[in-house]
Design a protein around this nucleic acid. Structure first.
Lengths: 218, 218
DNA sequence: GCGAACTGAATGAACGTTCATTTTGTTATA
DNA sequence: TATAACAAAATGAACGTTCATTCAGTTCGC
């Protein structure tokens, strides 16, 4: 942020740069420990999940992380920055799970099944992260930039879909539509499970996969 | 809320009710005009949509509605009450659209198509309301009570699904799963459209309907 | 002229953020 | 190894702001 500011102003005003500024991260992390940072990330997820963004004050986040309020600002520029960083981190974790052990094979359907189940497993295993993500995805909590950043990691799935469409095994519609009918529904089911309205078990998952595939197959 | 309190405590404690309490709305509306109330509801939707719940302060809501801050409290008990009432109102409007001109007929698929398109039309026509609803549905903004209240109006769709399952034309899975794969995806597509990532037009809608039906048909 | 509707300044609680200070850790000196 | 000097990390009280809510006073409809 400071770096941006300097670059923008000096180039806009055509000032001579007196010193060749060493580019440095605006928030240099302590060399050793990410322990407190991680505790803050976890605390943020928990509190935002329980009562929403507006009920996760910095003081509470700090307390839950076992840290003083001011310490947050050694790791994050602001509350907004904290939320954005947590979002990106969780999204990365999501994507890593989605493509764990995935190598593009011959069968589009087999590949899709693998990824879909990876995602479903993640949502069931990492409930906290998943709930946090679906809150972020439906609310203006997170910057548009961070959203785009989080979307990048989904490449392999998009490529798989393109391949399937080229072969005529997947309906020729926008990837957003494919996502809407295959991945997005899982979030709804998880949410219902969280509210004790529905129980997601192995057989339900398998049935859901078949429904997902039926909706997009050609 | 007051009414609930009275009923609960007196029945739990087995107190004799001294007076047959006249049930009255905790917020008796001014006899004539709902104009200001409606303006407040609209303003709330707009502001919550633009920047989220935490960026919709009462003062702003009042200003946008052309009303003094204090006036809000003639119509609503608190901000939470305002949000809940708006949610229920919008949800009712949604359900009315969903079942407009709907009478259960012979063909389960035809009936479903009718309702599905009604819902899709609503989401496209009443974008503000739809965006508001999907924010509420993924965030602890709204009370669980109001959620349940909003769910009631979906009865006809549940009955249709039961009928379809009894006849073996719809997969025998929980209605939550059916909802997740047919209705919920529309919200995602709308959201992408709002972010200018995707364009929903007539043909996309029809294609989406086919995908929805394919996912739940037996 | 009366009561209901409405106003907007006042209120106090809660919030994000800052900063003077303390604690902890690392390096230099002998 | 012991100690002094320094730096980094962490603290939490304090600050200014913003918020939801209240209420004494004003306007409106009849």
């Amino acid at each position: 942020m400071n770096v941006h500011f300097v670059i923008l102003t000096s180039s806009l005003l055509n000032l001579p740069s007196p010193i060749p500024l060493p580019i440095q991260s605006p928030n240099p992390l302590p060399p050793k420990g990410r322990a407190k940072r991680d505790a803050l990330v976890r605390a943020t997820i928990t509190l935002v999940n329980n009562n929403g963004f507006h009920a996760a004050p910095m003081a509470k986040i700090a307390k839950l992380a076992g840290v003083a309020a001011g310490t947050i600002y050694r790791y994050f520029d602001s509350k907004q920055d904290l939320i954005n960083q947590v979002y990106i981190e969780v999204k990365r974790s999501f994507s890593e799970s989605a493509f764990r052990d995935y190598v593009a094979g011959d069968s589009v359907e087999e590949d899709f099944r693998k990824i879909w189940h990876n995602i479903a497993d993640f949502k069931l295993r990492e409930v906290e992260k998943s709930v946090f993500l679906s809150q972020c995805d439906n609310t203006p909590m997170v910057d548009e930039d961070s959203r785009r950043e989080g979307l990048k990691h989904l490449r392999p799935l998009l490529e798989l879909w393109e391949r399937g469409q080229a072969r005529g095994v997947i309906r020729p519609v926008s990837p957003y539509v494919l996502y809407a009918f295959t991945i997005y529904p899982i979030a709804f089911l998880l949410h219902m499970q969280q509210r004790d309205l529905y129980q997601l078990s192995r057989t339900e998952i398998d049935e859901a996969y078949r429904m997902a595939w039926n909706s997009i197959k050609n």
